[in-house]
């Protein structure tokens, strides 16, 4: 075995990782008979950098902020960051109808309940 083989070690796929700091976004969660509504603060995140994955009762919400670099720093309190948070989602959510809007750095995620899960008024018939 030559010495060269030990020194020239190729990069392995598992090492090619760029780590962005991860922070949990602050959220408000509301519910009514028709849907669950989630508001999440994601300042500076563009629409295309947000992903919502619902799988097996878990929802992963992730949004990445990339600030335009420039100038010399006076002070830095905000950085590029990945807003990431996982929620447990009840089975009664109709996954196909989930939709969201992003405005002023706030994501509003609507999780409609499926028809069978909506509360129903039962008529009682006089016998």
């Amino acid at each position: 075995m030559s010495e060269n083989e030990i020194v020239a070690r190729n990069e392995q796929p598992g090492e090619l990782v760029h780590q962005l700091p991860v922070a949990a976004p602050a959220v408000d969660i509301y519910e009514n008979d028709a849907e669950i509504l989630l508001h999440a603060d994601m300042p500076g995140v563009l629409k295309d950098d947000i992903s919502v994955n619902i799988d097996n009762g878990k929802m992963l919400l992730s949004g990445t902020r990339r600030l335009q670099p420039g100038g010399s720093a006076g002070w830095r309190e905000l950085t590029d960051v990945e807003f990431r948070r996982t929620f447990a989602v009840p089975q009664s959510i109709d996954v196909n109808k989930v939709h969201a809007e992003l405005k002023d750095g706030v994501l509003r995620l609507h999780l409609p309940k499926s028809e069978s899960a909506k509360p129903r008024r039962i008529e009682i018939k006089a016998g």
Partner: peptide
């Protein structure tokens, strides 16, 4: 709000995080 201040030469640039503020 959190802020960043950058010196761009002729001007300063300040970025503040104000989600959901009109």
């Amino acid at each position: 709000p959190r802020t960043n201040l950058s010196d761009m030469g002729d001007n300063l640039e300040l970025i503040a995080e104000v989600p959901g503020v009109f």
